[in-house]
Design a protein around this nucleic acid. Structure first.
Lengths: 145, 145
DNA sequence: TCTTGAACCTATAGTGACTGTAGATATTAG
DNA sequence: CTAATATCTACAGTCACTATAGGTTCAAGA
């Protein structure tokens, strides 16, 4: 494969993302604008390939686009100390740890609810009862399942 | 406390959510429109209190607004069989379980990365290397930390 | 070479669940 | 009464995409 003269479609397919996503990254300044053909079509080279790969990989690890932006700036300067990189990664890690804890707690609650449901009518439905139970408000945490 | 003549601010404070959120729920049809004062201010009663409580509690358990809409319709008819409620709850539970698994896997990856970082320069930063490493693409899953 | 379908383009709006703000009106406390 | 607070509608923003409309360019096949 030639790492030059790459169309946006090719780039997207190889990176496992959508053409729109690439355009989005360009719009928000994460990916530099590439040169164009006379027909106004984007032409990418290996620099873009590497950068998009970095972005996608970081996204897969759950880093926010802002964090990725920061990491990209850092990675462009090999002489920088990597303590900021370390900080960004560790911060993200602790967010993930926290989120797991919240979801685990949530899972327990849901399991309890589901287990208590014996079938039958709504009028006697334990799930609905729990949801309607005002005293249960504020006993839970997270909601981005 | 009187469960009538409740202002939106009172309702929001008691439900632990924002005034805007209540207006939003009204807009999307989840909360019925309440009567108004001559000064065009909303006036809620205990029916709204109960309904909002149901919604907030369900949200805290991570149910989507659409799922909550469905549950509300069901809860309004006590003679309905609760198998749909059961299905909605179980479906959500398995989503949570799945999400925990994905995040746990992600956590391991991040831990590995962070552990490999010895400090120093970006040029030798293991975290940056891993993110830039094309062969790691597609080995991960979730990103809503 | 010609034709047609696929790929590309920009612009704009939508997704889900909120959240914030501007500018105006109503209410309440001192 | 006055000033501060609460309420109102309208509209846009958040985050990370995602889809679509209408138009242009490119490439494959006959």
């Amino acid at each position: 494969m030639t790492l030059r003269d790459i169309s946006i479609g090719r780039l997207a397919r190889d990176a496992g993302c959508k053409v729109q996503t690439i355009r989005y990254y360009e719009q928000i300044g994460l990916l530099p604008e590439p040169p164009r053909t006379a027909g106004n079509q984007r032409v990418y080279d290996k620099v873009h390939v590497k950068r998009l790969s970095f972005i996608r990989h970081s996204r897969e690890l759950g880093f926010s686009l802002d964090a990725i932006r920061e990491l990209l700036v850092l990675s462009d300067d090999p002489d920088q100390p990597c303590e900021t990189v370390d900080r960004v990664a560790k911060s993200h890690l602790s967010e993930v740890v926290e989120k797991i804890a919240r979801l685990t707690s949530l899972k327990s609650e849901l399991e309890r609810m589901v287990k208590q449901c014996k079938g039958g009518r709504i009028g006697a439905c334990r799930i609905i009862e729990v949801l309607a139970d005002h005293s249960h408000a504020h006993c839970l945490t997270d909601h981005s399942a």
